[in-house]
Design a protein around this nucleic acid. Structure first.
Lengths: 147, 147
DNA sequence: TCTGATAATTTAGTACAGTAAACTAAAACA
DNA sequence: TGTTTTAGTTTACTGTACTAAATTATCAGA
């Protein structure tokens, strides 16, 4: 049992490293930062947001959001559309264009998950869900303790 | 089945985000970059490395490695020890001092994995191992296709 | 209609990680 | 012993993301 939980820590670490490096590579490839990608995810889930709303979501200044959206636009991931209700505003809209890198990853992961039956998938889902909760909690704690 | 693999993609995405954000928080908390942490992991596994060897491992210039080691030292994670065989050299040595953040995470993850029996742990290990392989392969492809 | 507030962008500046080159000390070799 | 090479650090510079403040256009309210 002890041996198995130690192994779990090892591959958890390897998974972390692999995830971080993958995302760095994606960022470098697309010319966007991790924060850019997270902002894009917010827009994708929520729908178009004004630059100001995005600034609130990200905690960045309006100027920094301008830069962020520039990068997302340049990468073909988002556009600025005028807001019909307020001409001062732009609505940052996800293009929905999924870069090959994500479709490739999804396809590869589909072949991985296709190996498992329902029970196994439930176990995996449980593990991942709990892991995500742990990570979020630990992240929260870190953010709350100032250096 | 299709529903389940789509859910797998969703929590895979959430896991990715949680991992990246956790590591960013760790980095900010400790004052080290992701690259610093990876270099530290190399030293931890391999044993002390000279600055030059570390530069080769990381692909950075000697000057950048000096900065990296400065940061690791400042965070209490590594030290510079003289190399008895060549006085021009320093051996970058991991202190082995595990920051609370990692022990806390390990403890939290241990409670997660303690929920599963041997069969379930084997399933999880299989999933994680394959996921890591997929991520590494995709990362390699990205690095190989220049922007 | 005018004034104050708001939205996004631009401008000027900062912080940081990294590179290239210079520097200093030590090692290797003739 | 003198010269060349090597190791790590420092210095000067670059690129990038970000902040603060200024700018320009639009909106809301008196």
């Amino acid at each position: 049992m002890e041996e198995d939980t130690r192994q779990a820590a090892d591959y958890g670490r390897e998974l972390s490293t692999a995830v971080v490096m993958f995302h760095e590579a994606v960022g470098a490839h697309l010319g966007v930062t991790a924060g850019d990608q997270r902002a894009l995810a917010v827009i994708g889930r929520h729908g178009p947001l004004s630059a100001g709303a995005l600034a609130e979501h990200t905690g960045l200044t309006p100027g920094a959001v301008t830069g962020m959206v520039d990068r997302l636009e340049r990468a073909g991931l988002a556009t600025r559309d005028p807001d019909p209700q307020d001409r001062r505003r732009v609505l940052i809209t996800a293009t929905g264009h999924l870069p090959d890198v994500f479709t490739d990853l999804a396809a590869a992961m589909a072949t991985v998950t296709a190996r498992y039956d329902q029970t196994q998938l439930a176990t995996i889902a449980d593990y991942v869900t709990r892991t995500v909760e742990v990570l979020r909690e630990q992240t929260r704690r870190l953010r709350d303790t100032r250096r």
